[in-house]
Nucleic acid binder design. Structure first.
Length: 337
DNA sequence: TTCCGACAGTGGGGTCGCAAT
DNA sequence: ATTGCGACCCCACTATCGGAA
């Protein structure tokens, strides 16, 4: 194979620095925004719903690290094997481990492999994983972090033979907004927009942005939990929706939401709850909560979330406000799982 | 003086691992 | 065998404070 560094211009080559060895580097993180754009100075990648993973190879040995410096190689023995076989002996690369459910990356499926420390048990889960690589920090004796993103990606693409389960994360060079529309239509989590000339930085950066395909809908408030610590008013809202296939319709439990409130809202809602309190749970489902407080199911909250979990709960919920334009008994589950 | 970014603190679902029941 | 709890993963959001503009 030709030297991957041959893809560099002289100008980029001058930005190479000597590598300081097989160190863990805290990954570069993206900032959430809903200010979407199509700037040609940026590129756009699929946002994968998995776990961030840093590949560190040194002396031909592979170690995988989580975002928090935890060694996770034994959870993904087949990825380590593939990297041993197909990656250069010295590199640090950035990527995401994913599991597929059909054509979608599924964090839910991946969860059964997270934290497994016995490689045989990890393989025995039957959950296939892939590693998508999207950045390269170190190759051989060279540190690439000061190079512009496009140059790092070119070297990454040339440095490995990408074959399953190791994949190169493709990107588009333009049309971010159109791409986002397609992404959402495909059921993807969203896009990561990256400034094409940015260096590799550590921690949260404005040079990487998250464009997310958001979901939200109304839910009936059926109760609340106690606050803890310095929190005032209440901890979280217990949410539900009506299953109108039943007669009379039944209030199904959909999980909790505990963020998105400012202090004034916490206090104001609590005052409403004190007027609406009742003894019995309004939900037909058992609510796995210690010491919950129930209210008459009259208030309707708008809640943003990323998706429904397998267990019919909201993932990453956040409160967006009360809805006064929709009667509680009209609230149903809008999106099929 | 005002604004912004980083951080701590509170909250979510899910899984694993271990201790107590 | 079941239950509860903390530690991890993924995350959203508010409040605060110090430094930059």
């Amino acid at each position: 194979m030709a030297d991957p560094l041959d893809t560099l211009t002289d100008e980029d080559r001058a930005l190479l620095r000597p590598s300081d060895g097989p160190a863990f580097h805290p990954p570069m993180l993206a900032t959430l925004t809903d200010d979407y754009f199509s700037d040609p100075g940026w590129l756009f990648e699929r946002k994968l719903d998995g776990v961030r993973t840093l590949v560190v190879r040194y002396g031909g040995r592979t170690e995988l690290y989580s975002r928090n410096r935890k060694q996770v190689g034994s959870s993904y023995p087949e990825l380590v094997e593939a990297l041993d076989a197909h990656a250069p002996p010295e590199l640090v690369a950035d990527g995401e481990v994913v599991a597929f459910d059909g054509a979608q990356t599924s964090f839910a499926r991946l969860q059964s492999r997270l934290g497994l420390t016995d490689p045989r048990r990890a393989r025995a889960t039957g959950v296939a994983v892939h590693l998508y690589l999207f950045d390269l920090l170190v190759l051989g004796t060279h540190d690439l972090r000061a190079l512009p993103l496009r140059a790092r990606k070119r070297v990454l693409h040339a440095a490995l033979e990408f074959e399953d389960p190791i994949r190169y994360s493709n990107h588009r060079n333009a049309d971010g907004e159109r791409y986002l529309t397609e992404a959402c239509a495909n059921g993807w989590e969203g896009l990561i927009a990256k400034r094409a000339h940015s260096t590799y930085q550590h921690g949260r950066s404005g040079d990487w942005l998250k464009f997310k395909c958001v979901a939200d809908q109304e839910f009936v408030i059926g109760g609340y939990t106690d606050p803890s610590g310095s929190r005032v008013g209440f901890g979280a809202l217990l949410l539900g929706y009506y299953d109108r296939r039943r007669d009379p319709p039944e209030l199904r439990y959909a999980g909790k939401v505990g963020t998105g409130f400012d202090t004034a809202t916490l206090r104001a809602l609590r005052r409403r709850f004190d007027e609406l309190g009742r003894e019995r749970s309004p939900f037909v489902d058992r609510v796995p909560e210690r010491g919950p407080h129930w209210v008459r199911p009259e208030l309707v909250a708008q809640v943003g979330f990323t998706e429904w979990t397998r267990d019919g709960r909201l993932r990453h919920p956040r409160y967006q406000g009360l809805r006064h334009d929709k009667p509680a008994n009209q609230v149903v589950r809008e999106v099929p799982s």
